[in-house]
Design a binder for these strands. Structure first.
Length: 900
RNA sequence: GGACGUUUAGCUCAGCUGGUUAGAGCGUUCGAUUCACAUUCGAAAGGUCGGAGGUUCGAGUCCUCCAACGUCCACCA
């Protein structure tokens, strides 16, 4: 397609499909196929946070892809060996829960029972494969330049090997152990879950204060009376005078169950004498805290019993007594409370606010029940390392591992480091095993008393593999290295690990970031990535979270189809700041689309302009990608506007580079947009229509801004680039900026700014007087020598941009003309006598008044010795200059007033 | 109970280590169909930076307290 055929409006659809295909064909997503320049460059690797195979991508994924792709394209152009390693996550519990829900919706009552393990897994696998295919296509559509040859899946064979190996090593180091402890149990999901998979919701609850029996001396309180059937102790503070006397005694109490409870009164420092009745009914089987007391008592040699009264089905067990067995917890609660009432044991019943833990996937209330599970120890010293996992996780974000700053994870914004650390200090041992089926099987085999832990099943007959699966985060925690080939010593692993950059939403800081740090520090004594950028979540126009239940979900692909991927990308990136939520709404996308179109038309103008103006086919074809700046050597700086725009381009290049280096995506993009639209399009291109002969300069500017824009808007920039280049923009060198912009430019830039405001002021003058836009007018200007020269030199530009018949430099503005002051110049507009003198006076008076307070306060500041002696010189000087100008302006205004 | 975040034009948000008369986009008002673009162009109106103190020559920008909204954490027995 030749540029003369470029349509007036940019149509993203065909272009995007064509361009992405071309990229893939050229193989530049694969770091091994990048040009020599990149092969020599430093590695830059981003592990794509693998989206869950639970369905389709949402806007949040689009934001993440935009962030990653912007970074990787930037670094690729800068000559690094850059790669995004893509993948998907089997998302164990989330996916199984999703498929089960779908099966139930289709009429199945108990999918697990009805299908059995293998058949249900087959269903889930089918669904997962479908999701994967959909999501990969969606990622392509967004334009993410990830290396599909390195595509991974948390549940494929390579990752399974990694997971098993990791588990085995941790087991052999004594960090993974099997233990009977209280776990978080979802009855609906029929599985344990980790502390991180619990979502707390506020609700009202009844708080009951009661005695076990008439003759029991201590009053206790609870929101879960039914669990009290499993109480085996009452804990009080050792110094509590009210209860001291009972410590050590055991009471047999009849609570209306089949057999009486033996309640021992124990002392525990943890009990707060001020809270409630100062005594705590201990239910070791159904409370993590109480279980800890149970363990403590055991260690002390003064054990108490543990009686599970709630089973895995959420119903009361036989241990709860015949009268309760089989009842749901809620039914049992009612029954027990009724018993207390009937026997005059209930002392108080009040309503309180309670925060109750629920399963984030199944939604039901989490029960605490005791169960034998696999755990990862946070506190145990790793053999030969002198540190625990907790220590490593702490070191990785504070001092760097072993005090090495190269092994320090930097989190942006910094405040998340503190949240991370708080969490690290409070981490409990991680329950690794799950009873759901969709996931990596625990690599443990049993035969009688024997246990085998390893990558593969042991030799010999009669071994049975543990039926449980691993917490999904165990596999995603190893993502940064499992995707690079570990446990094999691959070239990728050596080259790209630790990875350079990671981005994620703050909602998975604990779930994922911490686990990745844990795994990498454990295995390699190294970090998983150097810098982590934390982004907020996308909300809708009202600030509500996007969710299926709110019905406000948006399909990014529909948006891409309508507005284009580039438009979507920049509208998501603009207006965000690290760690903060942002809102998404149509106007933003339209704005993105409009800008894309603007860039398109700027390019169209420049390219066609070149064609028309340079009959000698000056257009350079660039056939050596390392010579990206080939055009720059050819241009000639001739006018003020040339100097100005090139100076601005330098400045913007340096600034955008700096901002991208520090992950300031929005400021970088906005600065670029401001330059492209407000400086280049609105001024320089308009001037170019008057001054002519700017082909070379424009053909320097266009490629440069296409490069600068490419990380943000890869499609449209690549396509425009293809109109005058053989090579591809995706691997073109990032523009170099000379930090030392020649000082002589400053003066030029200032002169141009003077010119620019003069033109704006002249335009305003005619607009205020209601002169119709098409009409040519006469201006006159009172200017000093320097300004005079400026106006002379740019006479045609001013005339054209203000639609003037004539512009004359005069001693004074003639009578009957409308006037105003531009900087220190007085400007006039010929109204052919039709001037409202009074209105003019009012306007000028207003301007004089507006200036007065500024002059006054600035003068006061400059007279203040404290200020002039303490403030830095440049501040004082610039203030003097400004004051000077303001005074001149005021003077001009006053003179004009007088002459009226 | 603890911690963190937010509070700047009608709306959505920028404002780095304190230093010019506080910015952008959208929206609004007025004007424009001229040869890149009406997904456009020109011009304008509109905030004193949640509140109260303090530090400083100087505070949206630092400190203290308060308020509203939001988020996370906690063994609320």
């Amino acid at each position: 397609m030749d540029f003369k055929d470029l349509p007036k409006a940019y149509d993203s659809k065909d272009v995007e499909a064509y361009i992405y295909k071309r990229w893939e064909e050229n193989g530049f997503f694969n770091p091994d196929k990048l040009p020599e320049r990149n092969q020599q460059g430093a590695p830059f690797c981003i592990s794509m946070p693998p989206p869950n195979v639970t369905g389709v991508l949402h806007l949040g994924h689009t934001l993440e892809n935009a962030l990653m792709d912007t970074m990787v394209r930037f670094e690729r152009m800068r000559g690094k060996k850059a790669v995004i390693v893509p993948g998907t996550d089997h998302a164990a519990i989330a996916t199984q829960a999703k498929v089960e829900k779908m099966l139930i919706a289709d009429g199945m009552e108990y999918p697990r029972e009805e299908l059995g393990r293998e058949k249900l897994l087959e269903k889930i696998r089918e669904f997962a494969e479908g999701s994967k295919a959909t999501m990969i296509n969606q990622i392509r559509k967004i334009g993410t330049s990830c290396d599909w040859s390195r595509l991974a899946y948390t549940f494929d064979e390579e990752r399974n090997t990694a997971v098993n190996e990791l588990f085995t090593r941790m087991y052999n180091d004594g960090l993974i152990y099997r233990g009977y402890r209280v776990v978080n149990w979802t009855v609906k999901g029929q599985s344990t879950c980790s502390d991180d998979e619990i979502e707390y919701v506020d609700r009202k609850a009844k708080f009951y204060t009661f005695k076990y029996s008439k003759d029991f001396p201590i009053v206790i309180a609870t929101t879960r009376p039914e669990t009290k059937l499993g109480d085996t102790a009452v804990a009080v503070h050792p110094n509590d005078d009210r209860y001291k006397q009972f410590i050590g005694q055991t009471f047999s109490v009849d609570v209306g169950a089949s057999k009486p409870l033996n309640i021992k009164v124990i002392a525990d420092e943890e009990v707060d004498p001020e809270f409630g009745t100062g005594a705590l009914g201990v239910t070791p089987a159904h409370s993590a805290v109480d279980f800890a007391m149970y363990e403590k008592q055991k260690a002390k040699g003064d054990p108490i019993d543990i009686i599970p009264v709630i089973g895995e089905d959420g119903r009361m067990t036989a241990e709860a007594g015949e009268a309760y067995q089989g009842l749901t917890a809620v039914e049992a609660r009612e029954k027990f409370v009724q018993y207390l009432k009937d026997n005059d044991l209930l002392i108080k019943e009040e309503e309180i606010d309670q925060s109750v833990g629920t399963s984030d996937r199944y939604g039901d209330v989490i029960e605490a029940i005791p169960k034998t599970q696999w755990w990862l120890d946070m506190n145990k010293e790793i053999p030969g390392r002198g540190k625990s996992l907790r220590d490593l996780m702490r070191d990785a974000v504070t001092t760097g591992l072993d005090g090495d700053k190269e092994k320090l994870v930097t989190i942006t914004p910094d405040r998340f480091t503190k949240l991370y650390l708080d969490r690290v200090e409070n981490l409990r041992d991680w329950c690794l095993s799950r009873q759901i089926w969709w996931g990596h099987r625990i690599p443990v085999w049993y035969k009688g008393e024997e246990i085998h832990v390893g990558n593969t099943a042991p030799e010999g007959e009669g071994w049975e593999q543990d039926p449980d699966t691993l917490d999904t985060w165990f596999s995603s925690g190893s993502w940064t290295f499992s995707t690079l080939g570990w446990p094999n010593e691959t070239l990728d692993l050596n080259t790209f690990h630790p990875t350079q950059w990671m981005q994620m939403g703050y909602e998975i800081l604990y779930l994922w970031l911490m686990r990745m740090v844990l795994m990498s520090t454990y295995l390699f004594n190294d970090i998983p990535f150097k810098d982590a950028y934390i982004h907020g979540i996308l909300r809708d126009k009202e600030g509500k979270k996007f969710s299926k239940s709110s019905g406000n979900g948006i399909d990014p692909i529909e948006v891409v189809d309508e507005y284009g991927s580039d438009a979507l990308r920049i509208s998501l990136l603009f207006g965000i700041s690290a760690g903060n939520d942002s809102r998404y709404y149509t106007e933003k996308i339209e704005n993105g689309r409009n800008f894309t179109n603007k860039l398109w038309n700027i390019s169209r103008f420049i390219l066609t302009n070149i064609k028309q103006e340079s009959s000698s086919a000056r257009r350079t074809t660039n056939n050596d990608s390392s010579e990206g700046e080939v055009r720059s050597s050819k241009y000639e700086i001739r006018t003020l506007s040339d100097k100005w725009i090139l100076s601005r381009l330098e400045e913007v290049t340096a600034s955008v580079t700096k901002k991208l280096e520090t992950y300031q995506f929005s400021p970088a993009g906005e600065e670029l947009r401001d330059f492209t639209w407000n400086d280049l399009a609105d001024w320089y291109l308009e001037i170019a229509k008057v001054e002519k002969g700017k082909q070379e300069i424009l053909m320097h500017i266009l490629p440069t801004i296409l490069k600068l824009w490419h990380p943000f808007m890869p499609f449209v920039t690549e396509f425009i680039w293809s109109q005058f280049n053989q090579d591809q923009l995706i691997v073109a060198p990032w523009p170099q900026s000379q930090d030392d912009v020649p000082r002589t430019m400053d003066q030029e830039v200032n002169s141009f700014e003077t010119l620019r405001s003069l033109i704006t002021d002249l335009r305003r003058l005619r607009a205020e007087q209601g002169i119709e836009a098409a009409k040519f007018v006469e201006y006159s200007i009172v200017a000093d020598t320097y300004q005079h020269q400026l106006i002379e030199e740019n006479h045609e530009v001013i005339k054209s941009l203000t639609r003037a018949e004539s512009i004359n430099i005069e001693e004074t503005i003639a009578e009957g003309w409308a006037t105003d002051v531009s900087g220190t110049m007085t400007i006039g507009l010929n109204l052919a006598g039709a001037i409202d003198v009074e209105a003019e006076k009012i306007k000028l008076q207003k301007e004089i008044e507006e200036l007065a307070p500024y002059i006054k306060s600035t003068e006061a500041k400059l007279e203040n010795a404290d200020f002039t002696s303490k403030a830095p010189e440049h501040v004082v000087n610039s203030m003097k200059d400004k004051l000077d100008e303001a005074k001149k302006k005021q003077q001009a205004l006053k003179e004009r007033m007088k002459s009226l």
